[in-house]
Design a protein around this nucleic acid. Structure first.
Length: 137
DNA sequence: GCCAACGTTGGC
DNA sequence: GCCAACGTTGGC
């Protein structure tokens, strides 16, 4: 069954536009065990929200997992992994952290409760709702 | 730029 | 293996 995820990045370092420019790219640099476990659970075809932290604090686009996890070639040990992501589409309107916090139906999202987790699962209901929010403007 | 939250490291 | 100290992330 298809699953949904959310990954965070700082747009100035590596954001949605970088991914679009590359067409398909490794999502690398995850150095956190919780986040890594989520990366490992990703499967081909899963959908991934790209969230921009810091200056933007909004979900900006959707990517698809094209290759499930494999060892991170940029790491000096083999305990870290990456996945390959392909941008699918930019959201019509970004969904901001503020909007997410204001919606009680989204208050249990890891994004709200565990601000620092850089790779996190998203419930299917939350996914659908976020898509709606991105269109209702 | 500050600070809270949280993850990691290292001494014991 | 515990826990204090430290470092990093990210919202404000």
């Amino acid at each position: 069954m298809k699953k949904y995820w959310l990954v965070k990045s700082e747009p100035e370092v590596y954001g949605w536009d970088h991914l679009v420019a590359k067409e398909v790219d490794m999502w690398e640099g995850v150095r956190n065990y919780g986040a890594r476990n989520n990366l490992k659970a990703m499967q081909q075809g899963d959908l991934v929200f790209i969230y921009h932290s810091q200056s933007e604090k909004a979900i900006v686009g959707i990517a698809e997992v094209v290759t499930e996890s494999y060892p991170d070639p940029t790491a000096d040990t083999d305990k870290w992994v990456v996945v390959d992501l392909k941008p699918i589409k930019k959201l019509a309107n970004p969904v901001t952290l503020q909007e997410i916090k204001e919606d009680p139906r989204l208050s249990n999202m890891a994004l709200v409760k565990q601000a620092r987790l850089s790779v996190q699962p998203v419930e299917e209901e939350a996914y659908k709702l976020l898509i709606k929010l991105s269109q209702n403007k």
